[in-house]
């Protein structure tokens, strides 16, 4: 499959938008996630389902992604948009797509650090304008200069990698034997352990971990869908919390 410059640029624009305020702050919880990124990239490249499946795979690696105070473990959005695009154009399977997306997401952290650093200058600009009494200028400074900067540091690299990357990827694949591709599949099967573990660090404790083992058994042994497992989880959560918290009210009173 070939990719036109227009398609590459559209993917670059959506990558920018996913970090921008234009989808509201909730954009960070939606358009920024590889599941949605893969879906949108798939639509742009005419393969929405394939894109969504690749995005879903990449997203498991970043399931425990938490951005707190500007420190983070990579850029899931870059891995999602760019990784899906490279995978669709080069015809990669989901596991290989996951393996190549991780380095992309890690390198892209540089863009985030650059943005957070340069943005500090705009704060001083805002200080000066407010000091002069131009209070309304603050709205402009909080929105436009940082967004122009963000557009430059996000749109340009993403578009270029999406447009020129497939040649490098397909060149790499041509020299690779089936056994090397098998290694990619193994790597792709191991990386989700990180995303799941990162999330368990937050919500897993001696009380909840048995439910994790139960979830593994339900999916591997009983081969249940996530949706069914989630419904069972809601029932369990309601039962367990109402048992644990019943009667506690009397103690408090």
């Amino acid at each position: 499959m070939d990719i036109s410059f227009l398609q590459a640029a559209l993917i670059g624009i959506f990558y920018y938008l996913s970090w921008s305020p234009w989808f509201t702050y909730v954009g960070f919880f939606t358009f920024n996630r590889p599941l949605v990124a893969g879906f949108i990239t798939g639509i742009i490249l005419g393969q929405p389902l394939e894109g969504a499946l690749i995005g879903a795979g990449i997203n498991v690696i970043y399931l425990g992604f938490i951005s707190a105070g500007g420190a983070q473990m990579g850029d899931p959005s870059f891995a999602g948009y760019v990784g899906t695009a490279l995978a669709l154009v080069s015809n990669l399977d989901v596991a290989t797509a996951m393996a190549i997306s991780v380095p992309l997401g890690t390198i892209a952290t540089v863009l985030w650090i650059a943005k957070m650093t340069v943005n500090s200058f705009f704060v001083h600009w805002a200080d000066k304008e407010v000091e002069k009494g131009n209070v309304r200028r603050l709205a402009f400074i909080n929105v436009f200069p940082p967004q122009i900067l963000l557009f430059l540091v996000s749109f340009i690299p993403a578009t270029l990698v999406v447009f020129y990357g497939p040649d490098a990827v397909s060149g790499m694949l041509r020299v690779m034997s089936p056994s090397v591709l098998h290694v990619f599949t193994v790597i792709g099967a191991m990386l989700p352990a990180l995303g799941i573990a990162m999330n368990l660090k937050l919500i897993g404790n001696s009380f909840t971990m048995p439910f994790f083992v139960l979830g593994v058994i339900l999916s591997v042994y009983f081969k249940q869908d996530i949706l069914i497992i989630a419904i069972m989880g809601v029932v369990l959560a309601l039962t367990v919390t109402s048992l644990r918290y019943s009667g506690k009210k009397d103690v408090n009173v």
Binding site: M209, F211, V213, I217, Q224, A230, A237
Partner: peptide
């Protein structure tokens, strides 16, 4: 509880 169970499912 719901979260850990679903993580296991993944």
């Amino acid at each position: 509880i719901l979260g850990t169970l679903v993580m296991g499912g993944l």
